[in-house]
C-alpha cells in the first residue's frame, strides 16, 4: 500500500520564551521541529508498512525550510518527501492547506491511506485532516488511538471520544488523524539520518498540482487574523506553608463554600 503522511514544521514549544513583563513571545532562537503530533502519524505509517509492505510518502506545504520536517520523517524511515512550496502560498489558512495537500495527494494518484497528526502544535486547528478528506471525497476517522485491522480495501480503527472510544470500520482510501496514545515514535537511526541528509526532496508548485491560484495564499484564505495578543496573565495567589494540619485547615477554610457548591 502507498501511505501518505502529511507533516508540518512548527516552532518548538519547549524553546519558546516569553518576556516576563509584557508576555510577548521572544521569537529569537526558537528552534523549528517536526510537529510532535505528526511524529505519531509517521510512526504509524512505518508500522503499517512493516506489516503490509508498500511505500510511504511524506508531504508538507510550507516555506523552503519546511524541508527539514520532511528530512526528519525520512530519517525515521519514510521513503520519499514532497514539499509543496510556492510564494503564492504565503499566508494560507487551514482551508487552503487542506485543499493544497488534497491536490498533491491526488497527483500522486495511488494513495491507499493518508495519516495526519491530530493537529498542529502551533495553530491547533485540527482542520487539515478532515479538510483533505473532504477535498478528496474520502471518509475520515479523527482522533485515532489504535488501528485494529487493515487490508487493501478497509480498516477498523478506534477513535478516542470524551466518554471512551468507538470502533469504526472504514473503506479505503481514507484519512486518519492520530493521537499520542497510538504509538511511541522511534528515534531516527544513524543510517536514517544519513539517508535523510542525502535525500532528494521533490518540490511542487501551485501550478504543478493544478490548484486554482484564486483559492490559495492570503487572497484565497477564507479567514483573516485581525490581531494576536498575550492572554490575560493568571495571577499567583495565596501560598500556604507550615505544618500539614495547619496549612490544610487554612486551605479548607478558603475553599469551604466553593467546594460545598461544586461537590457531587
Amino acid at each position: 500500500m502507498h501511505i501518505v503522511v502529511c507533516v508540518k514544521q512548527v516552532p518548538d514549544s519547549q524553546s519558546v520564551k516569553f518576556d516576563q513583563n509584557t508576555n510577548v513571545m521572544l521569537r529569537e532562537g526558537v528552534a523549528s521541529i517536526l510537529n510532535p503530533f505528526d511524529a505519531y502519524a509517521v510512526e504509524e505509517a512505518l508500522r503499517l508498512k512493516e506489516k503490509l509492505g508498500g511505500s510511504i510518502t511524506a508531504i508538507s506545504m510550507g516555506p523552503a525550510q519546511a524541508e527539514s520536517a520532511l528530512r526528519e520523517a525520512i530519517a525515521m524511515g519514510v521513503d520519499k518527501g514532497i514539499l509543496v512550496n510556492d510564494p503564492a502560498l504565503a499566508g494560507s489558512d487551514a482551508w487552503v492547506t487542506g485543499y493544497v495537500l488534497a491536490l498533491a495527494i491526488r497527483k500522486l494518484g495511488d494513495a491507499g491511506l493518508v495519516i495526519c497528526g491530530k493537529q498542529g502544535a502551533d495553530g491547533e486547528t485540527a482542520q487539515v485532516g478532515p479538510g483533505i478528506a473532504a477535498h478528496l471525497n474520502v471518509p475520515q476517522i479523527t482522533y485515532v488511538r489504535k488501528i485494529d485491522e487493515i487490508d487493501d480495501k478497509h480498516l477498523v480503527a478506534q477513535r478516542l471520544l470524551e466518554e471512551g472510544h468507538e470502533f469504526i470500520d472504514s473503506s479505503l482510501p481514507c484519512v486518519l488523524t492520530v493521537v499520542k496514545e497510538i504509538n511511541e515514535p522511534r528515534i531516527a537511526s544513524l543510517k536514517g539520518k544519513m539517508a535523510a541528509k542525502k535525500a532528494q526532496i521533490v518540490k511542487w508548485t501551485v501550478l504543478d498540482i493544478g490548484a486554482d491560484p484564486a483559492k490559495v495564499g492570503l487572497g484565497g484564505s477564507t479567514t483573516k487574523v485581525l490581531k494576536i495578543f498575550a492572554p490575560p496573565a493568571r495571577q499567583g495567589g495565596q501560598i500556604f506553608t507550615g505544618e500539614p494540619e495547619q496549612v490544610i485547615g487554612r486551605l479548607v477554610e478558603q475553599l469551604k463554600d466553593v467546594v460545598t457548591a461544586a461537590a457531587k
Binding site: 516552532p11 502551533d122 477564507t222 490581531k227 494576536i228 498575550a230 492572554p231
Partner: peptide, 12 residues
C-alpha cells in the same frame, strides 16, 4: 493558540 501562550482574533 501556541499552547495557550497567545490569543488571536479572526474573521471570515
Amino acid at each position: 493558540t501556541l499552547a495557550g501562550s497567545l490569543m488571536s482574533t479572526s474573521v471570515t
